[in-house]
C-alpha cells in the first residue's frame, strides 16, 4: 500500500545570485513499512527533498511545486495547522547532528514528553513521565529513571541521537525521515544507531526514508535506493541491483570510489572527476555529462537532452546510454 507518493517535486530557492534549483522533477513512492534510501553528494537535493515532505524548507524565498501525497492528502495543499498536526505525529524526522538537535534548556524527559503531549493534549503529567521513561528504555538509555531528568549536554553524541530517535518515535509515526542520522557519529556508534533504527522500525511498522551519502549505510538497512544528482533522481533500484548492476554512470562512480573487502590491496580507488555543478547555473542536457566518461560516445546527445528515468533491467535509470551498455557498466569503460 502506498503511504507516500511524491509527484514531480520542484524546489527552488530565490537568492541574490539567482534561482537555486535544488530539486527538479523528483517523483517516487514509499510503501507502508518500507525502507528507502536517498543517496547523493552534498547539494544533490536529497535533504531538500526530505525537508519538503514536512514543509520544513525555510528561507526568504522558497518555491515548492508538485504534489506530496501522504495517505492521499497533499501536504503542499494543507493549511499551516494541518501540516503541524502531521509533523511529529504521522511523519517524524531525525536530524544529522544530535549535538545541536536537542533543546539545551530542557531535560530530555521533558523533550520526549513534549513531543507526545503536542499530539495528545490532556495527557496527565504522570502518564507523560511514564511514556518518556518507556521511550528512553526502548532506545537503550541505561538508568532511564536517573537520566530522564538530565539535560542534553550530559549525554554523549550517540546517546543524544538515541534520544532524538526516542522523540521521533514516541508517536509511532507512519513515516520516519532520517537525514544522515549517523554522519556526525563515531564509526563504532554508527552501527548501533542504524541497528536501533531498524529495530524500532520493525516494532512500530514505520516506513523509513534514509538520507545518506554513505553507501555502507544503504547496504546495511535499506531495501530500495534512489540516487540523486543535481536535484534529479538519476537511478532508482533495489539495493541488490544497485550494488551488483548499477545502471547509471554516476552510481557506478559512487560504487567504484568506495573501498570494500573485495578490493585488492594495491588496487587504486577510482574517483569521479570534477565537482558537482552549481545549482544556479546547471549544465545543459544531462547534468552529469561534464563529469561523465561515457558522454563523448553519444555524439553530443548528453549536452542537448535531459534524460528521463526509464526502465533498464529491473532498475530505473536516467541515462542516454543504450540498455545493454548500462547493464554492463561495472565491466569498465567499454
Amino acid at each position: 500500500m502506498t503511504l507516500l507518493s511524491v509527484q514531480d517535486l520542484h524546489v527552488t530557492f530565490g537568492t541574490a545570485d539567482g534561482a537555486v534549483r535544488a530539486v527538479q522533477g523528483v517523483s517516487f513512492d514509499v510503501a507502508a513499512g518500507e525502507t528507502v534510501a536517498i543517496v547523493g553528494e552534498s547539494g544533490s537535493g536529497k535533504s531538500v527533498t526530505a525537508n519538503s515532505l514536512l514543509r520544513l524548507n525555510f528561507g526568504a524565498d522558497v518555491r515548492i511545486d508538485g504534489r506530496i501525497l501522504l495517505d492521499g492528502r497533499d501536504v503542499l495543499a494543507m493549511s499551516e495547522d494541518e501540516v503541524r498536526s502531521v509533523r511529529g505525529r504521522d511523519v517524524a524526522m531525525i536530524f544529522q547532528d544530535p549535538l545541536t538537535a536537542l533543546n539545551p534548556f530542557y531535560t530530555v524527559g521533558y523533550q520526549i514528553a513534549e513531543a507526545f503531549a503536542i499530539h495528545h493534549p490532556g495527557t496527565s503529567k504522570k502518564e507523560l513521565r511514564e511514556i518518556a521513561l518507556d521511550s528512553l528504555q526502548k532506545v537503550g538509555i541505561p538508568e532511564p529513571t536517573k537520566r530522564i531528568d538530565q539535560y542534553p549536554h550530559e549525554f554523549s553524541g550517540g546517546m543524544r541521537q538515541r534520544i532524538v530517535i526516542a522523540i521521533a518515535l514516541v508517536n509511532s509515526p507512519k513515516l520516519l525521515i532520517a537525514d544522515e542520522p549517523t554522519t556526525a557519529l563515531d564509526v563504532t556508534v554508527q552501527a548501533q544507531i542504524l541497528e536501533l533504527i531498524a529495530q524500532m522500525q520493525a516494532e512500530h511498522g514505520s516506513a523509513v526514508i534514509l538520507i545518506t551519502h554513505d553507501l555502507g549505510v544503504v547496504a546495511e538497512i535499506t531495501e530500495r535506493v534512489m540516487v540523486m544528482y543535481a536535484g534529479r533522481v538519476v537511478e532508482s533500484a533495489s539495493v541488490a541491483d544497485a550494488f551488483s548492476t548499477p545502471t547509471h554512470p554516476y552510481t557506478r562512480g559512487l560504487l567504484k570510489s568506495v573501498k570494500s573487502l573485495d578490493t585488492e590491496r594495491h588496487e587504486r580507488l577510482e574517483s569521479i572527476p570534477g565537482i558537482p555543478p552549481s545549482l544556479i547555473n546547471l549544465p545543459s542536457g544531462c547534468p552529469f555529462h561534464p563529469r561523465c566518461g561515457f558522454a563523448e560516445t553519444l555524439a553530443g546527445r548528453c549536452e542537448r537532452e535531459v534524460p528521463e528515468l526509464r526502465l533498464v533491467g529491473a532498475s530505473r535509470s536516467a541515462c542516454h546510454l543504450p540498455e545493454d551498455r548500462l547493464l554492463g557498466l561495472l565491466g569498465g569503460l567499454s
Binding site: 520544513l56 503541524r84 502531521v86 509533523r87 511529529g88 524526522m93 538537535a101 536537542l102 503536542i118
Partner: peptide, 14 residues
C-alpha cells in the same frame, strides 16, 4: 537557525 528549533518545528510545536 539552530537545529533544535527545526526539530521543534518538526515535532509539530505550535
Amino acid at each position: 537557525n539552530e537545529e533544535f528549533v527545526r526539530l521543534g518545528i518538526a515535532k509539530g510545536l505550535p
